[in-house]
């Protein structure tokens, strides 16, 4: 089983590439038992939501108001 540190690497890479079946499976099992990593995954997902919202506030719907 991977350590929390290594799992956070996969959780980050999840946004960059599709994880392999083994990686996904291992991560899922790890998350079942690890509250800290579950929180981290949600934090990473929120970072993506927030950066997207930041981008939209600036450049999308860029019609001058």
């Amino acid at each position: 089983m991977l350590s929390c540190r290594e799992e956070t690497e996969l959780m980050s890479q999840r946004f960059e590439r599709p994880l392999s079946f083994g990686e996904r499976f291992g991560l899922r099992v790890h998350l079942l038992f690890c509250k800290g990593c579950r929180a981290t995954l949600r934090h990473f997902m929120f970072l993506q939501t927030a950066t997207r919202a930041w981008r939209e506030r600036h450049d999308q719907d860029s019609t001058p108001r």
Binding site: S3, C4, R5, G36, A39, T40, R42, F46
Partner: peptide, 11 residues
């Protein structure tokens, strides 16, 4: 061992 030293809390 690569485990959380301080476990991150949910937001």
């Amino acid at each position: 061992r690569g485990h959380w030293a301080v476990r991150p809390a949910a937001w």
